[in-house]
């Protein structure tokens, strides 16, 4: 039985507490208490809570946050007992440009863990639909853990339409921005590609302030989606006829090498395959794992040697004190939850 100790953070639909097992006080857990019937939600259990419980209960993988138990409490709240992940998230590491240095070997280690998590979801017919650095938590031993399954869903039955209002804007693939209602695991692969780019650049790669601007950035940096490079694209619901004179052909390897050269030519090749405009030409999560970048030099850094925020487990206590107040303000998740990205950051 878990006992709640102190508050770790708060999101739109949940408050997260640090807890420990009654039988073994050294075993720490995170207890995520889902809120019910907020101002915007009067429909009972939230979709977020149902999805998170539904999918995390089925997935058991070293790179996916573990759900140990679910229990109910006063006020008919759902409480999720989650694996406690004390070292923040990937976004903190990326942002801490002065404090944390890393190179290709580290990026390869983090991307490898992300790639395995996403592949495992897809192998189990689950789309995550909200992959971004601050949903990638870091465990005490440096392992990256994919978290926040509040937007996840199972692969649709054939012909069933799905919402295109998913995935935080900066990580959203072009087909969703263009209103596709049928899509596949490749939406998550695009997000993975933008995370890869962000890890190298140490700032968000395509940071549009509006959906239109997001699409413009994609045209500018990757290429303009047209029938020639993406057959069928003009039939998507929100397709915009791009100005003939303004069409940017798909960027070639030279261009990517000039921006992401530190990943090396093989790494750039993988990045480009994840950021292919046409989802049919984009790598699947399995193809990502089969790419030769993983087995070429340099080898990925061992997880125990990866740079960590806050100097590892010894300093954990102090770290937590700061975290409670500090993180919620910097997270954009709450905005994504309501599927209105207009106010982001």
């Amino acid at each position: 039985m878990p006992i709640a100790d102190k508050k770790l953070g708060e999101g739109t639909y949940a408050v997260v507490y640090l807890g420990h097992l009654k039988a073994d006080p050294k075993r720490l857990v995170a207890i995520k208490k889902m809120k019910v019937n907020t101002a915007e939600w009067r429909d009972g259990l939230t979709m977020d809570a149902i999805r998170e419980v539904k999918y995390l209960q089925e997935l058991s993988h070293p790179n996916i946050i573990a759900l140990h138990a679910v229990f109910s409490s006063k006020n008919q709240n759902l409480n999720l007992v989650l694996e406690y992940l004390p070292l923040g998230d990937l976004e903190m590491l990326i942002k801490d440009v002065d404090g944390i240095r890393y190179g290709t070997a580290e990026v390869k280690a983090w991307m490898g863990m992300l790639g395995r998590a996403v592949w495992f979801c897809h192998e189990n017919f689950i789309l995550h639909r909200d992959i971004k650095p601050n949903n990638l938590f870091i465990a005490a031993d440096g392992e990256v853990k994919l978290a926040d399954f509040g937007l996840a869903r199972s692969f649709a039955d054939p012909y069933r339409i799905m919402s295109h209002q998913v995935i935080t804007r900066w990580y959203r693939p072009p087909e969703l921005l263009l209103g596709a209602r049928h899509y596949a695991g490749t939406v998550d692969v695009w997000s993975m590609g933008t995370v890869f780019a962000e890890l190298i650049l140490r700032r968000p790669f395509l940071a549009g302030q509006t959906d239109v601007e997001q699409l413009e950035l994609i045209c500018q940096w990757i290429g303009t989606p047209v029938e020639e490079n993406w057959p069928g694209v003009s039939k998507l619901a929100d397709y915009i006829r791009f100005d003939k004179g303004n069409i940017q052909p798909i960027r070639g390897k030279e261009f990517f090498l000039s921006t992401f050269g530190t990943a090396g030519p093989v790494g750039v090749d993988l990045l480009m395959s994840m950021l292919a405009l046409d989802p049919r030409k984009r790598s699947t999560s399995r193809q990502v794992l089969e790419h030769k970048w993983w087995t070429s030099e340099p080898r990925p850094t061992a997880k125990e040697h990866l740079p960590k925020k806050g100097g590892g487990p010894e300093k954990m206590g102090e770290d937590l004190k700061r975290k409670g107040g500090e993180i919620p303000a910097s997270r954009g998740d709450s905005v994504a939850r309501r599927l209105d990205f207009s106010a982001m950051r």
């Binding site: 009972g44 149902i50 539904k54 999918y55 209960q57 679910v70 109910s72 017919f125």
Partner: peptide, 24 residues
Amino acid sequence: SILASEFLLTQGLRFTFDVRHPFH
């Protein structure tokens, strides 16, 4: 009347929402 038993049902299901179907 719909929402009143939602939590009860959820508890009765031991919070397992996933059902594997043979249709696919």
